[in-house]
Design a protein around this nucleic acid. Structure first.
Ligand SMILES: [Mn+2]
Ligand SMILES: [Mn+2]
Ligand SMILES: [Mn+2]
Ligand SMILES: [Mn+2]
Lengths: 222, 222
DNA sequence: AAAAATATTTAGACTAGGCTAAATATTTTT
DNA sequence: AAAAATATTTAGCCTAGTCTAAATATTTTT
């Protein structure tokens, strides 16, 4: 259960996992920027994680998680998201607040804490931001969410997830009564301005999404 | 909310708080021994905590918590015990396991986490070891527990708490079906051997407690 | 009131994680 | 194919927390 990694090493590991999702290979600069440190510090840490067999490292080439490292990362993500569910569902925190708290709680990993928490929460499939929660064996529930650019005018849809849940974006959504499970309809597409006019079914409120905003929202056609 | 102390500084603070309960003034050696470090390390940390106005320090004399430091310590104890209740009552951990986990969780202190946890747990008055939980303003519920040497033969009593909940002692109790709330009767006192024969009401099981064991159990006459 | 024993502090060194500045490799542009 | 720009690593230094060994203060014993 105990990973042999320090809290800081675990945070780097999670960052590598996140970047690898998108890019495959992770460069020193990418990692440094994600962690908010210097490239020199990232190089130092890369060497440490490499010595612990968590990542595979080739000089001037970048890093990749080993199978072992990927497993550790997924369990870390699992704990993070389970804590987010706890904080949101049981303690009533808003989805903007849960991330910072889970960022600390995720590092507690003794006994079978994650499994007990999972059972207590009723084996949730996704966290408050719509991100899928890996099961005990590291399996991620398969989702088939799309983005709004795959819809046609007058299609109905539901918000299912957020690509990058940074606090400012979550706040933007909350202020406009948008959240996971929210039902909407695509009213019109402005192809030149690259904007989408949508209507919230519940309130009949109408909004315009720029491409940048729309690309950050995962949906399902209904 | 954020104390300005590192996790390690917080652990020292809690140790000082614990030792001060018993002794008043805390010596360098006592602290080093409680923390499992060298006296030199304890001296180093004492200087740091003193600079942060958490303790008052006089060379070669010992340390004492300041009012500010005592408040921080009590809030830390509050978080520790609330997490223990959560782990025990909600996740079903035994009282031997909750301490180690709470030792890590107690350091998470952002937003109003302790207060939300407290409300969620129904404002518990004591943790799974019978230790009182301070309220949000640091007030400890007053208890009037005694030890068995204040009883007479044939008195009935209930276990209310444990003085020093180390794992081995908790295990000793669990193996004999003893725990908080357990009802017993004092059968006889052997003044010369300094032992107490007690009877568990529920099972009619009879046990002999040595003075060392008896001194570690807090009870209430019923 | 000395001597001996004990407690505490200081000195110097080590590891983890971080930084800046300089050196070196790689990629892109011309 | 050079030159310029960018990316990465190395070198050297810093702080937090730890250690051992040595120095100093205090307490206890004789
Ligand atoms: Mn984290
Ligand atoms: Mn999340
Ligand atoms: Mn702790
Ligand atoms: Mn306890």
């Amino acid at each position: 259960m105990h990973s042999g990694l320090s809290i800081i090493e675990e945070n780097y590991l999670k960052a590598i996992y996140k970047l690898q999702q998108m890019d495959g290979r992770v460069s020193t600069n990418e990692l440094a920027s994600e962690m908010g440190t210097s490239a020199a510090s990232a190089t130092d840490m890369i060497k440490k994680l490499s010595n612990k067999a968590v990542i595979q490292y080739e000089k001037y080439y970048g890093v990749q998680l080993t199978t072992y490292g990927a497993n550790l990362a997924i369990q870390l993500v699992r704990r993070h998201r389970l804590w987010e569910v706890f904080l949101h569902d049981k303690l009533g925190y808003s989805w903007e607040k849960v991330h910072d708290l889970a960022e600390e709680l995720e590092h507690v990993n003794i006994h079978d804490l994650a499994d007990r928490l999972d059972a207590y929460l009723g084996h949730p499939k996704s966290d408050p931001h719509g991100d899928p929660i890996p099961d005990g064996s590291g399996q991620l529930p398969k989702t088939d969410y799309i983005k709004i650019d795959e819809l046609r005018e007058r299609d109905s849809f539901e918000i299912k997830g957020i690509v990058d849940s940074d606090a400012k974006f979550l706040n933007y959504l909350t202020e406009r009564n948008l959240g996971i499970g929210c039902k909407l309809r695509l009213i019109s597409i402005d192809a030149y301005a690259e904007t989408y006019e949508v209507l919230i079914e519940a309130t009949h409120q109408s909004l315009v999404w720029t491409k940048r905003i729309a690309q950050n929202i995962l949906i399902k056609k209904t």
